[in-house]
Design a protein around this nucleic acid. Structure first.
Lengths: 240, 240
DNA sequence: TTGCTGCCGTTAGAAGTTCTAACTCATCGC
DNA sequence: GCGATGAGTTAGAACTTCTAACGGCAGCAA
């Protein structure tokens, strides 16, 4: 029952029957059309009927490939997470530094390439809908890359803390950093120092703040350059 | 034609005919039900039919009061902006300091009170839809309050800039601040110094970053306290 | 090669949605 | 009291998701 068609023939892992091949191809095309539709009309306007029509087949045919609109949506969300995680890991592995700044720019490029894909992950949630569980695993991948990148930076310029005699402006108590050190379950056992936890968090929330507002078009009226704002926030992150 | 029923009788501004009175009441109830529905099912699931059914009337009756789903949506967005602007101005006018910290906490409280209302303003935009023009006027109100609050703070502790001899960490060039000073059209003529412009911007993007991720439930798996993260970001804003 | 099994895509239809059109009826204002 | 105005009704078109039943072709196995 499991793996239909794999009874006697030694189908090596990866070799698919022509039926499975066709099925995978159609599924891929459905998702492709879905992405196009989401990019132009938003996730809420995702219509199975329109996808079917654009593929030259009639509505209910799609239900052979996806149980319904929600399952297609889930698959797209999974793919979006996967794409971001792969992008981050590619930046980390390949040259180009692979540091925090490179990750930040990769994030911005990735978001600008398809704003609706970004919003599918980090945008307004649909109250009834719950993201699939395995996306949290991909989230861990993403946050691990960030924790790695922040951990390899010195947590604080060690000279500056000693040359000023207990100034009020260098890390006054940092209660949240202590709180994070106590509640580091989200780091999935990553041995990052508390400062790296705090900075990973700030990296996420601050860059998301700039990016989401930019992608939402909240800066359109004002004529400043959002790229410079992003850069300024990134430099602030790298400084303090 | 304008103001129907104001032909001969000296209806003082505010005195409405019983029909207009009833009409305003029904419009208000429609919006009330709409907010309930948005809070539970999200903005995309806003259904005129469901509202009508819950009010004991049948579908098309609502079209006497709103031209369609989009007009109702527009009205709700307008009300949301108005509510946030009023909240900010109340904080500013009334006691409780009225400073930046008070505004930040008011923003958080306002957002937590009705997350979907927050997302209606700052959440994922619907590609086809354009917000009504008069909301930009309310946005100016909001940003003006922020610029006022930041302008009354000293832009930099003047002592600390002089007691350290040209350290690398005190405002190295600040290219974005200059850029903002050149492109301050969004400040609507507000005479805020460049540092206040920069800080208003950071206030907006950083707090939005924390808030939107929290409201979207992105922190649910991790068990730290989002309120502490918000507080930490606010203190960072007040420090540097 | 032949036959069978199974999946693919079709049409039909139910239950929703927004929104228009036409109609009835109460109510407000003169 | 009577007429104009506007509120609420039902009917219906054009959508949507999704289920059910049906025909036919293709791949699989003997």
């Amino acid at each position: 029952m499991a793996e239909p068609g794999t009874t006697a023939a030694g189908t090596a892992a990866g070799a698919k029957s022509p039926r499975e091949r066709y099925r995978a191809q159609v599924r891929a095309e459905i998702k492709e059309r879905a992405w196009e539709q989401i990019a132009t009309s938003g996730a809420s306007a995702l219509s199975l009927n329109a996808i079917a029509k654009r593929m030259g087949m009639s509505g209910p045919a799609l239900y052979r490939y996806f149980a319904g609109r929600d399952e297609l949506m889930t698959e797209l969300i999974r793919d979006a997470y996967r794409s971001l995680a792969d992008t981050f890991q590619a930046v980390r592995a390949s040259g180009s530094g692979g540091g925090v700044a490179a990750l930040a720019h990769a994030l911005r490029d990735w978001a600008l390439a398809d704003p609706q894909r970004y919003f599918l992950i980090y945008g307004t949630p649909v109250p009834g809908y719950h993201a699939p569980d395995d996306t949290t695993a991909i989230s861990v991948e993403i946050v691990t890359v960030l924790l790695d990148a922040w951990s390899e930076l010195p947590s604080d310029p060690p000279a500056s803390t000693s040359d000023r005699p207990a100034s009020t402006s260098d890390r006054p108590a940092a209660p949240f950093e202590e709180h994070l050190a106590d509640h580091r379950q989200w780091a999935a056992g990553h041995p990052a120092p508390p400062a790296a936890l705090r900075r990973t968090m700030a990296f996420w929330t601050r860059l998301h703040g700039v990016l989401s507002l930019e992608l939402a078009g909240q800066f359109t009226g004002m004529d400043f350059d959002p790229a410079l704002l992003f850069e300024a926030e990134l430099e602030d992150l790298l400084r303090d």
